[in-house]
Amino acid sequence: MPSKVLVAASTKPLVLSVLSHGKNYGYRIIKEIEALSGGALQWTDAMLYPVLKRMEKEALITAHWVVTENGRKRKYYEITEEGKAQLQQDRQEWLSVNRIFAQLWAPNTDLSLIKD
C-alpha cells in the first residue's frame, strides 16, 4: 500500500481518470481502482465518499440519481468540463515526474549534463 501522502495526492486524479472513461458509481469506482492497480490500491469506502462529495462541491464532477432495472436507486458521477481541465493538468504533472524517473533509472544515465 502506498504511503498516506501518496494516496491522498493521487485520489482526485484517479477518480477523474476513472470518470473520464464514462459515468460511474461509488462501488464500481472502488472496484475499478482495485482492479487497475492489481489490488495495490484498496480504497476504503470511508475514503471515497467524502472525496466524491468534495469534488462535487468543487464542480469537478456532477452527480445524479438513476433508477436501475431492478428498481434500486443509484447515484452516478460524471466528470465536468472543469474536471477534464483539472485532469489534463494533473496528467502533465504526474507524467513529468514519471519521466524524470525513467531518465534517472535508465541503465546508462549520464548526469554529467549538469556542468558545474
Binding site: P2, A9, S10, W94, L95, N98, R99, F101, A102
Partner: peptide, 11 residues
C-alpha cells in the same frame, strides 16, 4: 518525485 514511483511504471 517520490509520488511518481508508486503508480506509474516507467514509460
Amino acid at each position: 518525485l517520490l509520488a511518481g514511483i508508486a503508480f506509474l511504471s516507467p514509460l
